[in-house]
């Protein structure tokens, strides 16, 4: 059974090995230079007021090659679940049903369940190996640039770092198998799988993730030096936000509250904040308005806790889908 699985899967397996090897080799070759720059720019050892150093480092580090590698590495991990779902998962049962060969193979001395278990384990293992390889290299390589940029807590980046890509790839693969089994035709199953994986990749980060760890809620007095955005509308309405208290945090909400505790939107003083006054005058005026920042965020030190919890959730989904597929193949596929 393992021989047959390997024989049917070997071309796809070689494609994946080549793909993973190319990505890993490119990152392994360029990583040391990136880390050298990370240290020599002083950014690696920087502890406070690193904004300027970070900008300098980013400017030096993001040449065309590194920018491409950053995008390709991150993109590869974001696309991997969809690709394994479409090309490994969806056709696995659907193609057999489509060509009628399921009637050939299930009439050998091997039960349908064992046939499926061997296929799920073999190809599932290949999926995990590919995801682990690419994610390990990408996670290592991107540390300096992530630190200097919006940070690896940023939702799209978070999904392409650490252990969660393994979980997404596993879910993508098993979802593809299940969809192929239910839809019974390979091409439609591939299309449905693509949609399903995209849905999981949107729903988990933007709906589920924030519930996996307890976010930090903080209030801080308004500090004009930390203003992130300041906008004044012609009707004297004012929008002001202040940067989060921790660098690299994933900010869930960030508002400015007025003295009454409600969200503050002015009205602004038309003299201080109007055309006559400069921005500094307006900021000083704002400082006297008794404003408070109310911010909810997940700090970057929760990165690994959140990684493992999300991975656990995805692993449970993959297992449940596998169990469902074993039930379905016995009952409903013929």
């Amino acid at each position: 059974m393992i021989w047959l699985t390997w024989r049917q899967f070997r071309i796809q397996a070689w494609v994946a090995v080549v793909f993973a090897a190319v990505v890993a080799a490119a990152l392994a070759a360029t990583g040391p230079a990136l880390y050298d720059l990370y240290r020599s720019s002083g950014f690696a050892d920087c502890t406070a007021d690193c904004g300027e150093i970070a900008r300098n480092f980013t400017a030096q580090a993001t040449d065309a090659l590194n920018t491409t590698l950053y995008v390709v590495g991150t993109g590869a991990l974001l696309l991997l679940p969809g690709l394994v779902g479409i090309f490994w998962g969806a056709p696995m049962v659907a193609r057999e049903v489509e060509t009628g060969t399921h009637r050939l193979v299930w009439n050998q001395t091997v039960s349908r369940r064992r046939w499926l278990v061997v296929k799920l384990v073999t190809v599932g293992l290949a999926t995990v190996v590919v995801a682990v390889t690419i994610s390990a290299v990408v996670t290592w390589w991107t540390v300096p640039l992530d630190e200097a940029g919006p940070g690896r807590m940023y939702p799209a980046v978070f999904s392409a770092r650490g252990v969660v890509p393994i979980g997404y790839a596993a879910v993508g693969f098993v979802a593809g198998v299940v969809i192929g089994m239910v839809v019974r035709r390979a091409i439609p199953a591939m299309a449905v799988t693509l949609l399903a994986v995209a849905l999981v990749q949107a729903v988990v980060p933007f709906v589920v993730r924030e519930h996996l760890v307890t976010p930090v809620s903080a209030t801080a007095a308004f500090d004009p030096s930390k203003i992130e955005q300041l906008g004044i509308h012609p009707d004297n309405r004012i929008d002001v936000t202040q940067g989060p208290p921790v660098r690299g945090a994933w900010v869930l909400s960030n508002t400015m509250a007025g003295p009454d505790g409600k969200e503050y939107h002015g009205p602004s003083d038309p003299v201080k904040c109007g055309r006559a006054g400069g921005p500094q005058e307006c900021e000083q005026w704002l400082a006297g308005q008794n404003l408070r920042q109310e911010v909810t965020y997940i700090p970057p030190d929760k990165f690994w806790a959140l990684q493992w919890r999300e991975f656990g959730l995805l692993a449970v989904i993959a297992v449940l889908l596998s169990v469902f597929s074993l039930w379905w193949i016995q009952r409903r596929v013929a």
């Binding site: 050939l104 009439n107 001395t109 039960s111 349908r112 064992r114």
Partner: peptide
């Protein structure tokens, strides 16, 4: 299915 006792040509 998977019985060694039955052969099936679909």
């Amino acid at each position: 299915t998977g019985s060694p006792r039955i052969g099936f040509v679909a």
